[in-house]
Each structure stands twice: as C-alpha cells, then as structure tokens.
Design a protein around this nucleic acid. Structure first.
Length: 594
RNA sequence: GGGGUCGUAGUUCAGUUUGGUUAGAACGCCGGCCUGUCACGCCGGAGGUCGCGAGUUCGAGUCUCGUCGGCCCCGCCA
C-alpha cells in the first residue's frame, strides 16, 4: 500500500477532454472496472463526479504495468500520467471523458478493498435492504451520487433565493415540548427532570410564529422534522422541510414569493424555465372534479356528478346513495369499451381497497347503445341525461362510484390515477404545478367525535366565514394553500392567527378547553398578546420535491441514510437496545423482555 | 392493526403449479491465456443452513402451520 505523500489531485474524473491532451495530470478514485488484456490494462477510474479511463502500457512503463495487474474492484488509486487522445475510432461516447484517456506513469495503491457485496455498476437492481446495509457503497453508484449532488445544489439555490429576498436562516430547537393535535411525537426522556419528556418537532411551526412576534420579519430554515407514523415510499420518520414564515403579508404575497422560489430552483438545478403564476383551484373544485385535494392535472378523466340525474332512478344502489346524503359520480374512460371482464373485475377490486363496495360500469357500443348490467334500471330520460353529462361517444367506458362522498371521491380519484397509468397518460416530461386554496378550516372526526383542524390549529379562518365558527364549523374556510406538482402535495401553508381572542375561539371550536389551551399553548397565547404582527408562511417537503425532480420512485433515493418501512436502519442497526443503567438514569422502568 | 408480494450461490434470477437421482443459469469471484478494450474475449475452477422453526410424508426448495425480514398499499401521517 502506498502513501499519498507529495501527490496532489489535479482533476476530477469527469473533467478531462480533448482540450487537455498533452497535460500531465493526477487523478484519484476507485476502480470501477478493469480490462486486463495481458498486455495493455484499462481501468475505469471513478470518483464522485465521473469516470476516466486510465491505461497501463507495458511498452511505456513495465514496472507500473506489472503493479497494475493486482488491481481489483473498488481499490483506491492515485495515478499520475499524461492525457492522450484515444486512437482513431476508439472514443467512448457514453462517458463525458470518452475522447481521452490517461496514460499512467505512476500508480499508487492508496487502499485495497474487499470484493463489494453487490455490483456498483448499476447494471442490475439490487435489493434495497442490502443497499442500505452497505449504503456507503450504494452511494458510490453514479445515480445515487448524482442525487446527493442535486440535493446539495437545490439547497444552495434555495438559500441563495431566500437570503436574497430578505429571509434570515434561524435554527429552532430539536428538543422541544410535545403538543396535542397532529402526528404522533417522537419522545426523548429527560434525565434531569424525572418523568418529563421532550418531543422532537413535527415541524418548527410554533417557533417560527414566535420569530415573527420577535420581529425577525422573514425566517427560513432547511430543517429536519419528525413524525412517528407508519412509513411509505414518500414518507420517512425524519424528513426535511424548507420552512419559512413572513410578517406583514397576505396569501397572495406568500404564493408569489414561493412561485419565485420554485422557478429559481428548477432553473438552477434542472435548467427548466417555468411560467408563472401557477394555476389555482379551490379545494371544493378540486374535490368535485378530481376527488382529491391534490389533483394530477396532466390528464383529464375528471369526475362527473350524476347525483341529480339518478336521484329518482330504479337502480337501488344509486338511489340509496343519494337518499343517504351520498353522491353518484362516474369517470368516462374514453375509448375503453374494449376492457375485458377481468379488467373490470381488477378495477372493482382496486376501488375496493378504498372502501367502494362495488363498481358499476357501462360500455358504449358502436351503435351508441349501452351494454351494462345496470342499464335496464334507468329510464330513457335518465340514460340520455347521464350520457349527455358524461359526454359519451361510441367506444367509451363509464365507471361509477355511489356511496358517501368521501368514499366515492377517494375511490374514483385513485381509479382515475390507475386508469391514467394503464392508458399511459402520465407524461413524465410535464410539470403541472397547481395551488389549491380555500381549504375548510375544520373537519369532523367521527372517531374522536369532534372537529379537528384540517391544516393546523393556528391557521387563520377567512374573515367572511367567521360568523359560522360556532354555528356551522364545517362551513368555515381557511386561509391555507397547498402547492401540488403532478398530483403530489409538495408544500403547504397558511396565514396564521395573530390575535389571542381569535386563537382562543378556534381552540374552543376544536374542543380544546381554556385550561388545556393555557396548559399546552400558554407560551403561544402569551406571545400573541405582545404585538404579534400579521404573518403567514409555508413549508415544502424537500425530500418529496427532490424525488420528483430526480424522477425517483421513493424519497429514500434522495436521502443519504434513510430508514426501512419498519423505521430501522440496516447500516447502524438502529434502533438498538440500551443498557439498564441508561434507562435507570432516565427514570424509565422497562416492562419488556430482553 | 389489516391486505398484497417477495425471500434459493457474493449478486440478479430459474426451479415451487404436479414432492422423487448430484438444486441450475448469468454476472461476480479465484487461476491460466490474451497489447486497444470500454458490461473486453477465451479456457478452467471454487462457491448453496433453498430466511428461520415445527409438522405431514418412505422422501420437502416444492405441501401445511407458525415465525422473522424486505418492498407496495389501506388505516395512520394537523
């Protein structure tokens, strides 16, 4: 093994090109592949940035060539040599440095390596568990390195933009207090205060409001947040938000500044020019047309409301749904009348996951007649009415949902996406941003038998709806807004309540008593009494945003050290058990078996 | 808490439907040959608790039950 002493790297492995021919250079990196011809030996040398072919020629330097015979995958090398043009017709267009190679005159073996447990050349998919266990190897793979480089550039672009727009980057505590509402907290026991616990923040929500009261005017932070809930492809127990808050603004200004941020980010990182303002849609319209508050607007297949038409019909399922306060809606899958019985059964099972108890369908035949198990239940007038409203043409397929609105909306919204996947309607090149506004302030939680905040309890209600806060809470709209990209919620925020009296009224509407509010939120209510300015903000889910920008299927691919679906880390084997003594110090008595 | 799916060589997989000789392939690895390759090529070789545990059977990678783990989803995630 050799020393680095006296040798300095001159270039990364992506840098050299035809313009460098003749230069003496020093490269350092890992052996990606070796091609040993017995005579000449080629090594693809890889570092974070790219790949360069280095050549050992026995005719040029027999000693160095002999040494190179021993090289194996992932050994760490320093090479000194001259940049040479590749022989005529030997250029490799697949790599950035493909026009040249480095003819090595000095080889130093800085470290050897065991044979890696999986190939690092991206030719085969490797199980994610193994990748996570050897994440330091997985991250050497060019695509993963590129994701982390992109993440860095995104964070730099975000900081530059926000700093340039008067935002201060201010850190908030990670050890803070548990507050009711929202996700389950990660708790940290206090050694110094027996029986007391810190909570890791679900978001810096209250601190950023306090910073507004403190006169900081504009705050941002790229910050870790923690939620102890079950994981998904786009959900990790710790994740990163771009968090911000602004004083003396209304929702228009918050949205305008964030459109600017997104435009800047996509230009800097992806070189994509976006046009603003982004389209907007109210929550009510989004749910009515798409069944969801985060519609993917890259394709049609919108929901069509037939409730009024079938109100009196003879099909019991439809009539009962409407009579019971539900709705009947359909999707017109244009040109899908050739779906087989099995296709329809699959789709019925698919919507079943979301609570739909069945799925009626109609195929429109070439002569315009309806082929359907349920057609016989409808009058001509009803058939004509439905057909007209759904815009049917021969060859179309109508798929129906009839139930409580939540079930119809969720199942048809998911069905719409499933159809789009099957029909290949999701254009990966398109970036459809959409602001969704006018969310309801509260929704009724049947399980808890009380009203809960749709966004969070500090969201300001719309002034003109305030009169209904006590009499008809579900009717009150909030000053909240979400930003949606291709059907993914990438950010959300609101104008906050900045007056104590209103905050107390909202707590009351949420069934939080004065005593409980005083106990849990005293610091916030008190702060609002000392000249809190009008303020509002927004937070982006950075991991999710980067996942979409990188075209990945999972946020794990844009996080250096993510956790598995069971919230474990195969690399460190966290979470781990701890010593009896540590528990005792924390005043915890275990009730589990070792 | 629930549903689905996967677990076989270092890796990616086939074999499981219908139980039956010595569990295969490709890549990787090791050795040999090879001076223009770039997923180099040619020859040879090593490498397996079939996730784990019970059960059924003359016999289990294959069937049954349980269990552990990965991934996807529902619930949950203000």
């Amino acid at each position: 093994m050799d020393s680095l002493a006296g040798l300095k790297r001159t270039h990364h492995c992506n840098e050299l090109g035809a313009g460098d021919i003749g230069k003496e250079v020093v490269l350092m990196g890992w052996v990606l592949r070796r091609r040993d011809h017995g005579g000449v030996i080629f090594i693809d040398l890889r570092d974070r940035e790219g790949i360069t072919q280095v050549v050992f020629n026995p005719a040029v330097n027999a000693e160095v060539h002999a040494k190179a015979h021993a090289l194996r995958s992932e050994w760490v090398l320093a090479v000194r040599g001259r940049v040479e043009a590749r022989p005529e017709g030997m250029a490799n267009p697949k790599i950035a440095t493909g026009e040249i190679e480095v003819l090595v005159s000095e080889l130093r073996i800085l470290n050897t390596s065991k044979t890696p447990p999986f190939p690092l050349d991206e030719e085969v998919e490797v199980s994610e568990n193994l990748r996570l266990k050897y994440r330091y190897l997985d991250l050497r793979r060019p695509s993963m390195a590129a994701n982390l480089i992109m993440r860095h550039r995104a964070c730099q672009a975000i900081r530059a933009y926000l700093s340039g727009n008067g935002f201060l980057e201010i850190e908030t505590p990670v050890l803070t207090r548990s507050t009711p509402e929202g996700a389950r907290d990660y708790l940290v026991p206090s050694r110094v205060n027996a029986g007391r616990f810190y909570a890791l923040p679900q978001s810096p929500q209250l601190f950023k409001q306090l910073l507004m009261v403190a006169g900081m005017d504009r705050y941002y932070q790229i910050v870790k947040c923690f939620r102890d809930e079950d994981l998904r492809a786009d959900r990790q127990p710790e994740f990163t938000q771009i968090d911000m808050e602004l004083s003396f603004v209304d929702e228009e200004e918050v949205m305008a500044i964030n459109e600017g941020l997104i435009v800047h980010l996509f230009k800097e990182v992806l070189g994509v020019e976006l046009s603003t303002p982004f389209p907007r849609m109210t929550y009510a319209e989004a749910v009515a047309r798409y069944g969801t508050d985060r519609p993917d607007t890259r394709f049609g297949l919108e929901l069509i409301d037939l409730s009024d038409i079938v109100r009196q019909c003879n099909f019991k399922v439809f009539r009962a749904a409407v009579d019971g306060g539900g709705v009947v809606k359909c999707i017109n899958a244009k040109g899908c009348a050739d779906f087989s019985r099995k296709d329809l059964d699959d789709l019925t099972a698919f919507v079943g996951q979301f609570g739909a108890r069945g799925m009626a369908w109609v195929k429109i035949k070439d002569d315009g007649s309806w082929q359907s198990p349920i057609a016989k239940f409808f009058s001509d007038e009803e058939l004509v009415g439905m057909g007209r409203k759904a815009g049917v043409e021969p060859g179309d397929l109508l798929l129906f949902g009839a139930d409580r609105p939540e079930i119809v909306h969720q199942s048809l919204a998911e069905l719409r996406l499933e159809l789009a996947r099957r029909l290949d309607l999701l254009d990966p090149a398109r970036l459809d941003f959409l602001w969704v506004t006018d969310f309801p302030l509260l929704e009724y939680d049947a399980e808890e038998k009380r009203w809960v905040a749709v966004h969070h309890p500090f969201t300001a209600p719309r002034e003109e709806d305030l009169e209904f806060l006590e009499s008809d809470p579900g009717r009150v709209r909030s000053r909240a807004y979400d930003l949606v990209l291709n059907g993914n919620e990438i950010g959300g925020g609101s104008i906050r309540i900045h007056r104590t009296d209103l905050q107390k009224r909202v707590f009351a509407a949420l069934g939080i008593s004065d005593e409980e509010a005083a106990e849990k939120f005293a610091f916030l209510l008190q702060a609002l009494e000392y000249g809190a300015p009008p303020h509002g903000g927004l937070a982006f889910g950075l991991d999710r945003l980067l996942m979409l920008m990188a075209g990945c299927e999972s946020i794990r691919d844009v996080i250096a050290f993510p956790k598995t679906q069971k919230a474990t880390c195969p690399l460190t084997e966290a979470p781990s058990s701890v010593s009896r003594r540590q528990l005792t110090e924390l005043h915890l008595r275990p009730d589990w078996k070792e």
